[in-house]
Amino acid sequence: MSAQGPISHTAGEIAVVLRPKQPAIIQFMKRLMHKPLGFISFLIILGVVFCALFADIVAPYDPDLTDRTATLVAPNVAHPLGTDPLGRDVLSRIIYGARISLFIGILATGTNVILGATIGMIAGYYGGRLGMIIMRCMDVVMAIPLIILAIVMVGILGPSTKNVILAIIVVGTPSVARVTEGIVLSVSKNVYVDGGKAIGATDFRILFRYILPNILHVTMVQFSIGMGFNILTESSLSFLGLGSPPPTPTWGQMLSGSGRRYFALAPWLAIWPGLAITLVVYSYNMLGDALRDLLDPRMRGS
């Protein structure tokens, strides 16, 4: 051990020497590798993110390029996933579709988690009348079946990427807030929170330095599971004609509308977009599962 660094005299430095320091991310990846499904899911997500970022390079064709001479072509070398009734390359449209799914997913889920966790922390920590009013407001939103509320919102506001994001934020935030509130209620009872108060820490400091680190594992799991759920919601709205309007290629929309007439002739049109949604949502769920096991302090080592 001493070969790795000079022997020091303070306890802190000795601890460093005893345990060779690795970046947190590498430590985490090593642990993730013990969860094969979680690890594979992580790789799939990385791959999809890569495709979305570099769609221009990865996609073999322009997703909107119509080709009257090659309509409804079955999967072949030139078009690995076939073409649609307008002769557009299905693979390219799916790759570009990843862009809109991930964009909406990350923006909406990120907002859900940050907003929901903040609301939940405030309601759980302060409690009392303020907490009750906040949570009853969340109850009101959660009293309506989620997908129906989202449909009403986008149906009224009009189908657009912006309105889909807005609907998902409104629909998804209360559940994050509710879960966070529950955990904060129990975390606040810990002795170290009383300790913080005793040495005069401000509420802000207690919330962000004492409580937040202890609920972060739940929040991260909620982000991963939420990503999957929200991508599903986005595709459902798209499927109902309430997503990002054409010509933007979205996975849900590829399975809906007038294109459905051609499914019996060209079944590949019905398969790939659904498979893409399933794969991505599946990966986020599995990653969420793995995160839950890895990050929950009680589950460590089991």
């Binding site: 399975l255 499914f263 019905a270 659904g274 949604i277």
Partner: peptide, 22 residues
């Protein structure tokens, strides 16, 4: 089991309608 959570119901429905017909 998780495929059931991940696969969008409108897609499974489409497949269920389409494939017996084909």
């Amino acid at each position: 089991g998780i495929i059931g959570l991940a696969a969008p119901s409108f897609w499974i429905a489409t497949i269920v309608i389409l494939f017996p017909a084909i």
